[in-house]
């Protein structure tokens, strides 16, 4: 599954053009061949927008695009329930790419923890 890169902007991939009102959380390292930054904009316990910066393979890019869309309008509690395993199943990731799904999960959870109403502060 390959993301159509022509449509990157609407897919929720890449950092927001203006980071005000966004929080972020990151996971992974270059040395591990996977690094993800999750950006969230949330109000009243609901995710208004989500974006992912992804240094990983094509499956992870596709999964990040899918997850960004899925997150929009979701309650923060629903977002907290996201796991890498669920994401990999939902997006039919190759078995060898599942470590990247865990990286996406970790980045999302880090961003959720940074939300002001989650007790975190703005990290962007």
């Amino acid at each position: 599954m390959v993301v159509a890169l022509d449509d990157l902007e609407p897919t929720g991939l890449g950092a927001p053009s203006n980071a005000a009102d966004w929080v972020s959380g990151s996971a992974g390292r270059i040395e591990d061949d996977c690094q993800v930054v999750c950006w969230l904009r949330s109000s009243r316990g609901v995710i208004r927008a989500a974006r992912f910066e992804v240094f990983a393979g094509a499956d992870a890019l596709s999964a990040a695009e899918w997850l960004a869309r899925w997150l929009e309008g979701r309650d923060n509690r629903d977002a907290r329930a996201v796991t890498g395993y669920w994401l990999a199943q939902s997006t039919a990731m190759d078995a060898e790419s599942r470590a990247e799904a865990l990286c996406l999960e970790d980045a999302l959870q880090a961003a959720l923890a940074a939300l002001p109403d989650e007790g975190g502060g703005r990290s962007s």
Binding site: L5, L13, I30
Partner: peptide
Amino acid sequence: ETVDRLRRVSPVWR
């Protein structure tokens, strides 16, 4: 074109 687009979504490139 491809490198530019992949970099636009890459935290490493940023």
